[in-house]
């Protein structure tokens, strides 16, 4: 609306200014950021490779590269038969990495979405409401963020897994759903704090006051003004939450506390769990590929997040676009 009216105005004044929507401008800024562009391409490549594993994987998740009767298939170093070597029962690491990355990205993305939804709701509510509720949320997240997350994660995992009505909703400890829920418990806090500080700054602005003056409700103001204007920080916190999800899943799996997808599936954490033994036995391929994949994903998503933050910050736009 606003864009149309300005362009008609410009046209009336005889100015030929093609006005662009802010999102288009942001996208332009994003693609000019070299780091972010490379990271996006790399990330999309990984995503493309894992999205239909039956096309890219050479073997099934649980398939052995060669039958044990035809020769030893355990711990084969990388070769033509298995590009990234084999694990303790002769399965192809490359294929498992594709299946595992797929599951882990799914866990990370779902946990990221849930964290953002919950965090935005709580952050906006807390900032608008203020007072005791706000104080309590800030104090609680303060303590929670300062608390060693791994200690808390193990405690929550054990506790939630024992409570019958919770496990009937989110599945037992070994399921993906449980892991997503567990990550969300820790993920919403950073989102809520980021969104809260953004809303605190926004809610004193004129357009919010104007909306309030015409009688818009808090909910309407949040949905039409506050959240769209905080989209930059929200997207950045989404990328942080996704990386957090990937790392939490792998960390817990490292202790044998991650999801146990069972036959027919695996996760990045499950593969990294193996790398611990692999390192002690000097089998580098068990360490290099799964860990490399995790670091690649983490770096790419971080770069994408930074790129988004810069892209949505118009102050950084030096008259271009």
């Amino acid at each position: 609306m606003a864009d149309n009216s300005t362009s008609t105005l410009d046209a009336a004044e005889g100015l030929d200014v093609a006005s662009k929507r802010p999102v288009v401008l942001a996208l332009g800024r994003y693609w000019r950021n070299r780091g972010a562009a490379i990271a996006t391409v790399l990330f999309l490549l990984v995503l493309l490779a894992v999205i239909v594993p039956s096309l890219t994987a050479r073997y099934g998740v649980d398939e052995q590269v060669i039958d044990i009767s035809e020769g030893a298939n355990q711990f084969l170093p990388p070769s033509k038969v298995a590009w990234m070597g084999t694990d303790d029962i002769g399965r192809d690491i490359y294929s498992r990495l594709i299946y595992g990355t797929r599951s882990s990205l799914f866990i990370g993305a779902m946990a990221g979405i849930l964290s953002v939804v919950l965090g935005v709701a709580i952050g906006v509510f807390s900032a608008l409401r203020g007072g005791r509720f706000d104080d309590f949320i800030m104090r609680a997240t303060d303590i929670f963020i300062a608390f060693p997350f791994l200690v808390a994660a193990i405690l929550f995992r054990q506790f939630l897994g024992e409570v019958g009505w919770i496990t009937s909703i989110i599945g037992d400890r070994s399921s993906f759903r449980f892991m997503i829920f567990l990550i969300t418990i820790f993920g919403w806090m950073t989102v809520a704090r980021l969104v809260r500080s953004q809303v605190l700054a926004l809610k004193e602005r004129e357009f919010v006051e104007a909306a309030r003056a015409v009688g818009a409700s808090n909910l309407r103001i949040s949905v039409t003004h506050l959240i769209p204007n905080s989209i930059g920080p929200i997207l950045v916190s989404f990328t942080i939450a996704v990386v957090g999800g990937l790392v939490i899943e792998s960390t817990l799996a490292f202790f044998g506390l991650g999801p146990q997808p069972g036959a027919g599936n695996t996760s990045l954490g499950k593969l990294i769990e193996l790398s611990q033994e692999g390192a002690r036995q000097g089998r580098w391929w068990l360490v290099a590929y799964p860990c490399g994949m995790l670091v690649l994903l983490a770096v790419c998503i971080n770069f994408i997040g930074d790129g988004l933050r810069d892209a949505f910050d118009p102050k950084l736009d030096k008259g271009k676009g």
């Binding site: 990386v243 790392v247 490292f254 990294i272 692999g278 390192a279 002690r280 580098w284 860990c291 670091v295």
Partner: peptide
């Protein structure tokens, strides 16, 4: 961006 378990395992290896 490298989680400590990755750097730990790699350095150990």
């Amino acid at each position: 961006a490298i989680p400590p378990f990755v750097s730990g395992v790699v350095l150990q290896l």
